[in-house]
Nucleic acid binder design. Structure first.
Lengths: 247, 247
DNA sequence: CGGTCGTTTGATTACGATCAAACGAAGTGG
DNA sequence: CCACTTCGTTTGATCGTAATCAAACGACCG
């Protein structure tokens, strides 16, 4: 594999944190058959209702998962960054129950469904790693239910900014609580169940209160402690420590 | 296994819909070591933050998963009925990230974490079945994010009533869209991100509009078609068809 | 029979939505 | 190069849904 995209290594390293892998396990990940494609900003990776034929690994850029309601409203359900499997679930469920769209220009590896299943079910250590990966996604969904269901606008926005910061840092894509938010205020609004107008006011207010600094799309969480409080944020649900005991 | 609770069979039958099982696979499920306990209404099965030591299978009754926010608000994140694993994820994640409480008197089988892991990772067909089970849970979480994030009060309540009806029927616990709702309006409110007062008004309105009939806690969805519309409900996300191809 | 819990209804408030418009930056074409 | 469009952000004014506050009622239970 001479020209394998470097993000494959990042993904494998994340898997190793989930389950103890042997060298051959690592190779199994890296030798997955796939076709790599560049997707422009706003391009679709999966569409709700699609029959699953492949599983997408995000190699660069950002993406989000969403659903459209009968009234035409959009709810963003999750955010994804380089190194993440964007629709592993669909390989097992057969049909996509959400759409996934890129936020930025992105490179995506599409792995045939059969290869994913074979990898995932052929080896206990790998199964464990991938399973835990989907379970952490699941934990994030649960937290999002809480976020949009029971927090006020200020806490919702603060919470998502904290989550994004933590996840970016865990992935090695940011540090010191400074990062480029790869989405518009409208998309942010659709992620927290508010309107873009209101999100704008909340961001302004968080700035005035000295919790964040903004410059264009760059977010700097100046006061992490107070921001965590404002967002009722406790990173435990991210399971960044999700240990790797038995292989 | 002379006196195994009959719900074990129901659970195994659900697993068979997810993945083709052999007789020995079925036996593996049914011979899981476990301790069975009766839990009174409102009793806790798991508490947020608990170190996972076992995995709970609900043998009878109803339960719900929830989180408490810093402000003291409660968000109910999922509902569970007999035959469902209530916290399979915790066995793999190590720590509970939500609490689970019974709605009614319930019988619960606690299976040691190690036994679950061994079962789940020791055999591809079983791994597949259990994994799909957790992925469907995950799909329901996604739908709930949409429900609380982007639907108005009427649709939220109608949606959850539709979901519960469908799931009960799929589990063989109800038919003809008539069922006993095992929760108070306050709990219903915490599941849809509203207040109990408002849920009460919405229920009344759905009754007056001829979509449902209520008698105490018994819900009868009189006009399923209009109710689906009102709740923007499309059962696809429940993946009740989630087929079982390769074993 | 009193007490608790859940449901129901009414009155008022408030948070965030909606409507509307201006502004700035980036991109396009004459 | 500048007019012009487009897209996203920002701010202001008003509206409406659901929250809050309050109280009565009914059912069940000890």
């Amino acid at each position: 594999m001479p020209d394998l995209h470097p993000t494959w290594d990042i993904m494998v390293r994340r898997m190793e944190r989930r389950s103890a892998l042997t060298e051959s396990d690592r190779q199994a990940f890296k030798s997955l058959p796939h076709s790599q494609r560049r997707v422009g900003p706003g391009g679709h990776i999966v569409r709700d209702g699609d029959k699953a034929e492949s599983c997408a690994l995000l190699l660069s850029g950002f993406a989000y998962r969403y659903k459209i309601t009968g009234e035409g409203g959009r709810q963003i359900i999750s955010l994804h960054m380089a190194g993440e499997f964007v629709d592993l679930q669909h390989s097992f469920l057969g049909t996509a129950d959400t759409s996934v769209q890129t936020l930025t220009e992105a490179e995506v590896a599409f792995i045939p469904k059969a290869a994913v299943e074979e990898l995932a079910l052929g080896n206990a250590a790998i199964a464990r790693a991938l399973w835990i990966d989907t379970l952490i996604d699941s934990s994030i969904f649960r937290e999002w239910v809480v976020n949009v269901g029971r927090r006020d606008s200020r806490a919702r926005v603060a919470h998502i900014l904290c989550e994004f910061s933590m996840r970016l840092e865990a992935a090695g894509l940011a540090k010191n609580h400074v990062y480029e938010l790869p989405m518009t205020q409208e998309q942010l609004a659709d992620a927290v169940g508010l309107t873009s107008v209101h999100v704008n006011r909340v961001l302004k207010q968080l700035g005035e209160a000295g919790l964040i600094d903004r410059d264009k799309r760059t977010i700097c969480i100046v006061d992490w402690k107070r921001m965590r409080e404002a967002g009722d944020f406790n990173e435990r649900y991210l399971h960044h420590d999700a240990a790797a005991p038995a292989a």
